[in-house]
Amino acid sequence: MGSEKKSRLPAIVATAVAVPVAVVAGVLVFNAIAPRAEDPAPQDLSPVSVEVPALSEEDAVICLALTATAPETAGGLQARPVSGGEGGASAAEAVMAYGDPAVLATCGVEPVAVEDTALVYKLNGVCWYSDEAGVEWTTLDRQVPVAVNVPESNEQPVDVLNDLSTVIAAKVPAAAEAPTGCA
């Protein structure tokens, strides 16, 4: 009986070593042949050349307060530097850009006139109006209007607008009047 135990010992040791090695080898082989999720294409985060609106001194101060506190991401899109602006305000004082293709948020645009019955959207304390395509969004209830151009390829413009609305509500004072739907 004692010799039977001695002859099993090498088999037990071999099994104790072989099983973990086989498991590790199986995991390595599986990871090598398993399909991988495709890495997203790298985003172009180079500076975006933009046009800068002509701003009064008061509007320039408000726009600078907005852009100086702009979030690093909006709707999951990374902030990008902007360039442009001849003679007046620099692009960084009035425009924010996010993602690739770039979502552009421009402070100090011309106000949009809408009828009281127009469809408006209240997002995080800011009232927005959009064109039919949902590409150009403009604030309706701010002293200094802000326009956000969201490329059609962006499937969720509201995600970007929600993130930007928070800082717009904090930094751009509300207008004395706004369309009925903005109340």
Rank of each mutant, 00 (worst) to 15 (best):
G108Y: 00
F30A: 13
G99R: 03
A22M: 15
M96I: 01
M1P: 12
P173R: 08
R36D: 07
A16R: 01
D39H: 09
V114K: 11
R8C: 03
E132V: 14
A169F: 06
A170R: 05
E57R: 01
V120R: 12
G76E: 03
A11V: 10
A147C: 07
A178D: 08
A54I: 11
V23P: 13
V52K: 06
A91L: 09
A118T: 10
R8Y: 03
V160H: 03
V23N: 14
V61S: 10
V120Q: 13
G88E: 12
G26I: 15
A32W: 10
E177C: 01
P47F: 13
T166K: 04
Q78W: 03
A178V: 05
T139C: 02
R36K: 13
E86D: 15
C63H: 00
V82K: 06
Q78I: 04
A34Q: 09
D131H: 14
E4T: 14
G181K: 09
A16D: 02
S90V: 00
N154T: 06
E38H: 12
A92V: 09
M1A: 08
P145G: 10
D116V: 01
V95P: 06
V17W: 02
A65Q: 14
S83V: 08
V160M: 02
C107H: 03
A91P: 00
A178M: 00
A91S: 01
A102Q: 09
V158C: 04
V112H: 11
P71V: 09
G88M: 10
V17A: 12
E132I: 12
P173T: 03
A175E: 09
K171Y: 02
G134D: 14
I12P: 02
V13G: 07
I62S: 13
A176W: 05
P157Y: 01
P47M: 07
S130K: 13
N124L: 04
V109H: 08
V61C: 00
C182E: 13
L45R: 05
K122G: 08
S7F: 15
V27L: 13
L77H: 03
A174M: 09
A118K: 09
V109N: 09
K171I: 05
R80Q: 06
V24M: 14
S7A: 15
A34G: 06
M96V: 02
T73V: 04
A54W: 00
V27E: 07
P20D: 09
A79Q: 12
S7N: 14
L9H: 03
E4Q: 12
D100W: 05
A79S: 15
E86T: 09
V135D: 13
V167A: 04
L55P: 05
G87A: 11
G75W: 04
E115P: 02
V52N: 11
E57V: 06
A89M: 00
D141A: 04
W137F: 15
P111L: 11
V82C: 08
E115L: 11
R80N: 05
K5Q: 14
M1Q: 13
E86H: 12
A32Y: 15
S7I: 12
A94D: 00
V52L: 06
G85A: 07
G88Y: 00
S83K: 11
S46E: 13
S3H: 15
M1K: 08
P35K: 06
A92W: 01
Y129N: 14
E58S: 13
V148R: 04
T138V: 13
G108H: 04
A70R: 03
